[in-house]
Design a protein around this nucleic acid. Structure first.
Ligand SMILES: [Zn+2]
Ligand SMILES: [Zn+2]
Ligand SMILES: [Zn+2]
Ligand SMILES: [Zn+2]
Lengths: 171, 171
DNA sequence: CCCAAATATGTAGTGATATAACCTATACGA
DNA sequence: TCGTATAGGTTATATCACTACATATTTGGG
């Protein structure tokens, strides 16, 4: 059992190395879209919720709830975990963010407009980067399998693990 | 936020209702297979590990680590969580059990012989029952998507959520 | 505008899940 | 049998998520 990967969550940014650059314009656009969507639905994107979303959007990797707590404190004031969880609850409910169960981590939706359809996440088990994709092939296959087994499908996120291009050979 | 499903783990057997019966012969067979497989690999299926596997096999639903702790105590003696986690670690590493990240729960492999290939679990979000399937269609699709995105595939378990046949309409 | 209801946040404590660190016991091979 | 590797015991702790209740803010009706 020399190299058994641990069962539990690994913080996404311990010894982090990033392969993809990050653009802030994308984040601004996403915020604007999110605001529009919330207005349309009568949902309240309050300052706290908005800030949580901004921090998620500003991160190239999924963040743990307590990572968010750390990043959201202002002038020595630490935000209570429950506050972050409540904001995440809201964001997830409205399709603005997702939870990665396999990592106990959260990330912003890459495309708000798709709403709560079946999406998939490719998660690099080396660097923790997550790519959200909406693949009809995956959705169809999953739907077929569910139907075959008599399961009624519920729109959910699929987590697929692999090793991203940047992490190949190198590690 | 009236009916937001909680983010955290729900014990798999709280208010449990079971739709499928359970047969103990299958469990005995699985134990025999597991023993054979461990002998062949030089892995040691010790009494503790074997008991954990037996308890998993005896459960129609995935069990939390602390459920296992509760079920494994004998004559007032409570097994330490770490002991259970170590046993689970072993079982998972050798393909005898799986972890369902979306539920923080563990279950025995339905077919030991398939080893650590890409399998999928259909998880009922109502009753918690999990069905392990090995669908070439799913495996192929996942592989293709990974390749498209430059990901190197790593054999892992896919967790697909839905509502099982028994739970339809009823709830 | 004022008030009542609904919604959102603050605060404190706790529950639930998983592991670290260190030590002892047992199994295995030479 | 002896040395090493592996497994398990014990204690404490890290990590993740939520309950319960009080307070503040928003919102819509009168
Ligand atoms: Zn990577
Ligand atoms: Zn890398
Ligand atoms: Zn069900
Ligand atoms: Zn049911």
């Amino acid at each position: 059992m020399v190299h058994t990967p641990s069962l539990q969550h690994r913080l996404p940014n311990e010894g982090a190395h990033i392969h993809a650059p990050w653009r802030s314009e994308t984040a601004k656009q996403a915020i604007a879209q999110s605001e529009a969507l919330c207005r349309a639905k009568g949902a309240r994107l309050t300052p706290i919720r908005r800030r949580v979303l901004e921090v998620l959007l500003a991160s190239p990797k999924p963040l743990g709830a307590y990572d968010l707590v750390d990043r959201l404190g202002s002038q020595g004031r630490r935000m209570a975990p429950i506050t972050v969880y409540r904001a995440l609850d809201f964001l997830i409910e409205h399709g603005l963010a997702h939870r990665l169960a396999s990592r106990n981590a959260y990330l912003a939706s890459s495309d708000v407009s798709t709403g709560r359809q079946t999406t998939a996440f490719l998660i690099c088990e080396s660097c923790g980067e997550a790519t959200e994709i909406t693949s009809p092939a995956v959705a169809d296959t999953v739907l077929k399998v569910l139907k075959e087994q008599g399961y009624q499908p519920r729109a959910r996120a699929l987590e697929i693990t692999g090793r991203c291009a940047g992490c190949q050979d190198i590690h």
